[in-house]
């Protein structure tokens, strides 16, 4: 890994100020993606602004209307939180399935969203649950947040502070893991909200996306059989050594049905 300046932020303002004093800095959250990218020289920041000691980014607030999770809350904390398990088990279940035990201890919700990896799990939950991404300067709807492969609506120094997940009637996430890397080849998050159904897919495109034809069918009847034969056009899907676009389209249909089934059985 190339040399870089290291700055340890003490609070949010300090983090942003430090960030703005460099040419090509990056915020360092859990580091489970960024440090690996730096070793491979896919990322070469001139400075890392470490958010690890900013206490305000680790707050969690669970109430019946919804859950607010600080950007620096780890996957493991979300997976193990009894309050989250009680209120929104679909979030703790998703967190439980990320990476491995050691990665979950370090990796964070905010880091995952800010990176917007095409195969990341959290973007699917954020988009399907119509989460709000709260930053140091504004609130961004998940619908507007994910803009492409590793691209988000965040401005260069903008810092994710927390993520608000509104309460769903029922929801679940199901994914097909690559047998070696364990990343989602396809992951589908299905949520029945107060005002409609959302189906968000990760792993299959340049970034997370919704499947409106499935959503409309599920509004009529929230059953796996409702989406039989429906899948996104595979011309738009990722086609790589791990899975063809056609296979991914098939997996979306299969894993959407699995997610619907587990949402029904849990409720």
């Amino acid at each position: 890994m190339y040399a870089f300046e290291y700055e340890r932020a003490t609070d949010q303002k300090h983090a942003v100020k430090k960030f703005e004093s460099y040419d090509a800095p990056r915020y360092l959250a859990g580091g489970q993606t960024l440090l690996a990218s730096m070793k491979m020289r896919l990322a070469q920041p001139d400075a890392l602004i470490d958010l690890g000691r900013v206490a305000s980014l680790k707050e969690m607030n669970v109430d019946p209307a919804g859950i607010s999770l600080g950007a620096m809350v780890s996957h493991s904390t979300i997976a193990q939180s009894h309050e989250v398990q009680q209120t929104a088990p679909w979030l703790s279940d998703l967190a439980k399935g990320i990476g491995d035990r050691m990665v979950r201890h370090r990796g964070t919700l905010g880091g995952s969203l800010a990176n917007s990896d095409p195969a990341a799990d959290w973007p699917a939950a954020a988009l399907a649950l119509e989460a709000t991404i709260v930053t140091d300067r504004r609130e961004i709807a998940a619908t507007d947040f994910f803009q492409g492969m590793f691209m988000t609506a965040l401005e260069p120094s903008e810092l994710i502070v927390a993520v608000r997940f509104p309460q769903a009637r029922r929801a679940a996430y199901a994914k097909f893991r690559n047998p070696a890397s364990r990343y989602a080849v396809v992951g589908v998050f299905v949520a029945e909200l107060q005002h409609g159904v959302r189906v968000a897919v990760t792993g299959a495109g340049p970034c997370v996306f919704r499947v409106p034809e499935m959503e409309q069918a599920l509004v009529q009847s929230f059953q796996p059989s409702s989406i039989e034969g429906l899948h996104p056009l595979f011309g738009d899907l990722n086609n790589d050594m791990h899975a063809s676009a056609e296979y991914r389209a098939h997996l979306i249909s299969v894993f959407a049905r699995r997610a619907i089934t587990s949402a029904i059985h849990r409720a």
């Binding site: 690996a36 491995d100 050691m102 990665v103 201890h105 370090r106």
Partner: peptide, 23 residues
């Protein structure tokens, strides 16, 4: 050295982490 193998696992403030993936 790429956080795949876990041979470098240590306990950091009470939890297991891959020490090759922490500065």
């Amino acid at each position: 050295d790429t956080a795949q193998c876990g041979a470098c696992t240590v306990h950091l403030d009470g939890v297991a982490v891959k020490s090759c993936q922490v500065l």
